[in-house]
Design a protein around this nucleic acid. Structure first.
Lengths: 253, 253
DNA sequence: CGAGCAATTGAACGCTGTCAACCCGAGTGG
DNA sequence: CCACTCGGGTTGACAGCGTTCAATTGCTCG
């Protein structure tokens, strides 16, 4: 990520990492690059405080951000993780009640919100992509609502692991070279806050999944997904294994 | 609602009920009205099936719609309720994995998705409002994630009642004429699916809140909110009562 | 009047939050 | 080199909320 942070501002969003800028017309990209600014954040730093008007929008180049809400009693709930390629911030003067913090060291491509919005008139395609991005985020939020409302903690962990696999290991690389290894980029506390549970329950679920040979624990943040189908069955999001006739009895949740 | 359904298609969206069309320029409103079509749905009817490409978008004029996801085992989770004034459907060819059904009799103002999108080029203000609407929906979804992840069932019911009060009883009418009465427009089954729990738990929570004199049950769908502050305290969304010094001990959840 | 549905109530089990203790590696200072 | 501290992670015991299963009530409709 040092390589990324040393990219000059004028070319940063033309890099292959910037999925938002790709597929845009050349002049739109140039304008975006002109008003963009690359910023680095250390783990734990606050990008945007809660109940604060978003004055910047942008995209994650590397690292992980967490969108979180803090309750009166100090408990925190993570309502979304932002991985490389994801957009953050809201257009228009909408004050969102989420805080955005760096869960790890992070490099961001930032725009001033108003300058960004000003480009909408000139390049409607930018607003189109923004609308698409927010719509996708809404879909993801609704999926997560389903997870929080209906799944057990173990199922949530399985779902999250499979999500990480999809996110970080694109399917174009067939996993004929053994079970895939995922890296959980956040600590147990954040993981629990994201899954709507406690660190203890997360730990118990992970250890249980390891005992059932669904995963193998390499270290506290890296796991080998031994039994993908078992995980998918457990997750019930049916992934690509929905046409199986449920051969084995449902494992104890 | 019979009055609404008899409105002619050409003028329906110029009615005061259509918050989406208001504040738009005259030509934009005219174009929207031209391609709009009012449709009626009976309770339980499906507007859009799950995993189906949205071919229509529109707005609720009266009644309540539910956005829901169905699990493999038949359980259903409601990820959002659509009340009069709310927009439904997704722009662009985005296939969302939610079904939209009428929870009650409903009257909708519908547009063909592609005709609607075609207006974006001519009237960017329409796309602006669409972007704002989706952003608001995302905020609501994140709020609901917090509710599902951190609150007890009783707290969720209290939060939902206060939400209904805000939604249906605008604050410009001071409630000096006694405690407000809310009407829950959906059955217990839908309520439970929305709150991420079961009908039994919902029923127990409601009865408990009645025993504690927080509410009074007029009939299974109408409740008098006797102790608004107590409800807000219970809900912990701190509503407008966040500056109180928590005078009474926290009630048993 | 009976069927059927919505809603409520009761009892028992189980998942999960809470509290507590423990393990372990990293950093620190003597 | 060792003792100490600190934070992250794991494990255990236990109580409580909530789901599940079951039965009951009340209402509508045929």
């Amino acid at each position: 990520m040092d390589a990324v942070s040393s990219v000059t501002p004028l070319t940063n969003c033309l890099s292959a990492q910037c999925s938002f800028c790709s597929n845009l017309s050349e002049p739109a990209r140039a304008e975006l690059a002109r008003i963009s600014r690359v910023r680095n954040f250390g783990a734990g730093e606050t990008i945007l405080a809660e109940a604060e008007t978003f004055e910047i929008v942008g995209q994650v180049l590397s690292g992980v951000l967490r969108m979180q809400k803090t309750l009166f009693d100090g408990r925190q709930q993570i309502v979304g993780l932002l991985m490389p390629g994801d957009l953050f911030g809201h257009v228009f003067a909408h004050t969102s009640h989420v805080a955005i913090e760096a869960a790890t060291e992070a490099v961001l491509c930032c725009y001033h919100r108003q300058s960004f919005e000003a480009l909408f008139a000139q390049f409607p395609e930018i607003e189109h992509r923004m609308l698409s991005a927010v719509t996708e985020e809404l879909d993801a939020a609704q999926d997560w609502m389903l997870l929080l409302a209906t799944q057990t903690v173990t199922q949530r962990v399985a779902t999250f692991f499979l999500y990480l696999r999809r996110k970080t290991l694109p399917p174009d690389m067939p996993h004929l070279i053994g079970p895939p290894v995922i890296e959980v980029p956040i600590c147990r506390r954040d993981l629990a806050a994201y899954l709507g549970t406690t660190v203890e329950s997360v730990s118990r679920s992970i250890q249980q999944m390891a005992r059932e040979r669904l995963i193998r624990i390499l270290d506290p943040h890296r796991f080998e997904l031994i039994d993908i189908e078992g995980l998918a069955l457990l997750s019930h999001t049916e992934e690509e294994v929905c046409d199986m006739e449920v051969p084995r009895s449902i494992r104890a949740g």
